[in-house]
Protein backbone atom coordinates (compact mmCIF):
# COMPACT_ATOMS: atom_id res chain seq x y z
CA UNK A 1 0.00 0.00 0.00
CA UNK A 2 1.79 3.04 -1.21
CA UNK A 3 0.04 5.58 0.97
CA UNK A 4 1.81 3.98 3.93
CA UNK A 5 4.98 5.65 2.74
CA UNK A 6 3.52 8.99 3.66
CA UNK A 7 2.73 7.80 7.13
CA UNK A 8 6.24 6.42 7.56
CA UNK A 9 7.66 9.75 6.39
CA UNK A 10 5.44 11.46 8.92
CA UNK A 11 6.74 9.15 11.66
CA UNK A 12 10.35 9.87 10.77
CA UNK A 13 9.84 13.62 10.66
CA UNK A 14 7.98 13.44 13.96
CA UNK A 15 10.93 11.65 15.52
CA UNK A 16 13.34 14.23 14.14
CA UNK A 17 11.19 16.96 15.63
CA UNK A 18 11.14 15.18 18.98
CA UNK A 19 14.91 14.82 18.87
CA UNK A 20 15.20 18.55 18.17
CA UNK A 21 13.13 19.30 21.24
CA UNK A 22 15.30 17.05 23.36
CA UNK A 23 18.69 18.07 22.04
CA UNK A 24 18.65 21.75 21.19
CA UNK A 25 18.87 24.41 23.82
CA UNK A 26 17.89 27.49 21.88
CA UNK A 27 14.22 27.94 22.74
CA UNK A 28 13.43 29.14 19.22
CA UNK A 29 14.92 26.03 17.67
CA UNK A 30 13.10 23.86 20.20
CA UNK A 31 9.97 25.59 19.10
CA UNK A 32 10.69 24.83 15.48
CA UNK A 33 11.06 21.21 16.49
CA UNK A 34 7.57 21.33 17.94
CA UNK A 35 6.30 22.84 14.69
CA UNK A 36 7.93 20.02 12.77
CA UNK A 37 6.15 17.49 14.98
CA UNK A 38 2.83 19.21 14.42
CA UNK A 39 3.37 19.21 10.67
CA UNK A 40 4.28 15.56 10.72
CA UNK A 41 1.00 14.69 12.42
CA UNK A 42 -0.82 16.85 9.90
CA UNK A 43 0.72 14.82 7.12
CA UNK A 44 -0.54 11.65 8.78
CA UNK A 45 -4.03 13.15 9.14
CA UNK A 46 -4.19 14.14 5.50
CA UNK A 47 -2.90 10.75 4.41
CA UNK A 48 -5.42 8.86 6.52
CA UNK A 49 -8.15 11.14 5.25
CA UNK A 50 -7.27 10.18 1.72
CA UNK A 51 -7.11 6.55 2.70
CA UNK A 52 -10.68 6.61 4.00
CA UNK A 53 -12.01 9.00 1.42
CA UNK A 54 -13.09 11.41 4.14
CA UNK A 55 -12.41 15.12 4.26
CA UNK A 56 -12.46 15.16 8.05
CA UNK A 57 -8.73 14.41 8.07
CA UNK A 58 -8.04 17.61 6.19
CA UNK A 59 -10.37 19.54 8.44
CA UNK A 60 -8.52 18.34 11.53
CA UNK A 61 -5.20 19.20 9.89
CA UNK A 62 -6.59 22.63 9.18
CA UNK A 63 -7.55 23.09 12.81
CA UNK A 64 -4.10 21.93 13.89
CA UNK A 65 -2.60 24.59 11.66
CA UNK A 66 -4.78 27.31 13.08
CA UNK A 67 -4.17 26.30 16.66
CA UNK A 68 -0.47 25.94 15.94
CA UNK A 69 -0.45 29.47 14.59
CA UNK A 70 -2.00 30.69 17.83
CA UNK A 71 0.46 28.63 19.79
CA UNK A 72 3.41 30.11 17.88
CA UNK A 73 2.22 33.60 18.63
CA UNK A 74 1.93 32.97 22.33
CA UNK A 75 5.09 30.86 22.49
CA UNK A 76 7.22 33.43 20.72
CA UNK A 77 5.78 36.14 22.94
CA UNK A 78 6.84 34.13 25.97
CA UNK A 79 10.29 33.64 24.50
CA UNK A 80 10.61 37.37 23.96
CA UNK A 81 9.43 38.07 27.49
CA UNK A 82 12.01 35.64 28.85
CA UNK A 83 14.69 37.08 26.62
CA UNK A 84 13.96 40.54 27.93
CA UNK A 85 14.20 39.39 31.52
CA UNK A 86 17.20 37.12 31.23
CA UNK A 87 19.04 38.11 28.03
CA UNK A 88 19.00 34.48 27.01
CA UNK A 89 16.90 32.14 24.93
CA UNK A 90 18.37 28.95 26.29
CA UNK A 91 15.77 26.62 27.71
CA UNK A 92 18.30 25.44 30.27
CA UNK A 93 18.45 28.88 31.83
CA UNK A 94 14.79 28.67 32.70
CA UNK A 95 14.90 26.07 35.40
CA UNK A 96 12.83 27.63 38.16
CA UNK A 97 10.58 24.57 38.19
CA UNK A 98 13.03 22.74 40.38
CA UNK A 99 12.62 24.83 43.51
Amino acid sequence: MELTHYVVLSCILFSVGAATVLLRRNAIIVFMGVELMLNATNLAFVTFGRMHGDLSGQVIAFFVMVVAAAEVVVGLAIIIAIFRARRSVSVDDVDLLKS
Binding site: L22, V91, D92, D95, L96, L97, K98
Partner: peptide, 14 residues
Protein backbone atom coordinates in the same frame (compact mmCIF):
# COMPACT_ATOMS: atom_id res chain seq x y z
CA UNK B 1 15.04 13.82 39.38
CA UNK B 2 13.42 17.23 39.25
CA UNK B 3 16.36 19.14 37.90
CA UNK B 4 14.23 21.88 36.41
CA UNK B 5 15.44 21.35 32.88
CA UNK B 6 12.55 21.37 30.48
CA UNK B 7 14.37 19.08 28.15
CA UNK B 8 14.71 16.41 30.80
CA UNK B 9 11.00 16.55 31.36
CA UNK B 10 10.37 16.33 27.64
CA UNK B 11 12.62 13.28 27.51
CA UNK B 12 10.57 11.69 30.31
CA UNK B 13 7.35 12.37 28.45
CA UNK B 14 8.72 10.88 25.26
Amino acid sequence: AQNGFVRSYAATIL
